[in-house]
């Protein structure tokens, strides 16, 4: 699964431009399940279990990542852009990016610190003042390499470091995609439906259509969620903690989760010796936002990989937590489908 996460994270796929991720996933699940691509670009897959399921369970992960999109080229050949998804300018200034299908290298420049007035020190440039420098001599040269609407992704390779940690762009939610692929490629006890969805980062849009189409009894959203176990953070301020297993959500900014599923997930983890933890802060949101209110309502559970610095070029998580998430997803899928 590690190799697959590495390959998935390296693919460019901002919201609305998930095609390379979709092709990769299809290449991995083809022959292991029935699948279709819907009108929005979601992959909906049906995997036969050893036995038919008495309840329809949907397992979801999103294919898209946060990034940027080219909105203009100025008279000196600098690229203007808008963020796609929630990206704090503080984590992108001074970073390397790749623009468009050709992967044109560029950088987010900044006025040198030497030329900043004392009272402006530490001020981050306004979003409208940000730009990408691809080294073009002028507007005409830039236009040969870049077109309006081109996508922009972080240039941030996959690194294994520390005690079992990985670093990459787009761990949110390619790690979740890898978990789903891995389950599809294995034998499962009961029939199950899987959705690899588009456009989560711009408002959980793909999942709305996918959930309507699948019409599940239960849904499990497999995500990457904020771990704030950094610096001097203690206790619940950490939200969730790398190395302490699968994070289970009771509430976030998008969803009040089924108390029943939340309790059953924690019980299952305890019973089976799977490392799990509470997500201890009502923050963020994910595809559950769309799925839980689909049609007449869907009991939904979110199981997440604790991930530091999400929505930055350097997401960091612990590989063993991904294994814990996978184990709990499998256990819950089995219990809910039975």
């Amino acid at each position: 699964m590690l190799e697959m996460i590495k390959e998935l994270c390296s693919l460019p796929g901002i919201s609305g431009r998930e095609e390379k991720v979709r092709e990769y996933i299809i290449s991995k699940i083809d022959g292991y399940c029935e699948y279709k691509v819907d009108n929005l670009g979601n992959i909906i897959a049906f995997k036969k279990g050893t036995d038919p399921a008495s309840k329809k369970v949907m397992i979801d992960a999103h294919m898209d990542e946060v990034g940027m999109i080219v909105t203009g080229i100025d008279s000196d050949g600098f690229i203007k852009f808008e963020q796609v998804g929630s990206v704090d300018s503080r984590v992108i200034i001074g970073r390397n990016v790749l623009v468009g299908d050709k992967g044109i290298p560029g950088v987010l420049g900044i006025k040198p610190i030497h030329l900043i007035k004392k009272d402006e020190e530490g001020n981050i440039p306004k979003n409208d003042d940000l730009y990408i420098d691809i080294g073009a001599a002028n507007k005409e040269e830039a236009e040969k390499a870049v077109s309006l609407g081109d996508y922009i992704v972080f240039e941030s390779d996959f690194v294994e470091f520390g005690s079992g940690f990985i670093k990459s762009k787009a761990i949110d939610d390619r790690a979740g995609c890898a978990v789903l692929i891995d389950i599809i490629r294995s034998d499962i006890p009961y029939d199950c439906l899987f959705s690899f969805t588009v456009q989560e980062e711009i408002g959980t849009r793909g999942a709305a259509a996918a959930a309507f189409d699948i019409d599940p009894d239960y849904a499990i959203v497999v995500e990457s969620t904020t771990a704030a176990d950094i610096n001097d953070a203690k206790g619940e301020d950490r939200v969730c903690v790398c190395g302490e297993g699968c994070a289970v959500s009771f509430m976030d900014r998008g969803t009040v989760y089924s108390r029943d599923l939340y309790t059953r997930a924690l019980d299952a983890a305890k019973e089976l010796g799977i490392k799990a933890q509470y997500k201890t802060r009502v923050a963020g949101g994910n595809n559950a936002r769309s799925i839980h209110k689909s049609r007449g309502g869907v009991k939904t559970l979110t199981l997440s990989i604790p991930t530091r610095y999400i929505h930055s070029p350097c997401c960091v998580c612990k590989y063993e937590d991904i294994e814990s998430v996978k184990a709990l997803v499998c256990a819950m899928a089995e219990r809910l489908a039975k």
Binding site: K167, V239, H311
Partner: peptide
């Protein structure tokens, strides 16, 4: 190593 940052959610 990675220099720590605060995600937009927090």
């Amino acid at each position: 190593g990675v220099i720590t940052s605060v995600p937009p959610h927090l």
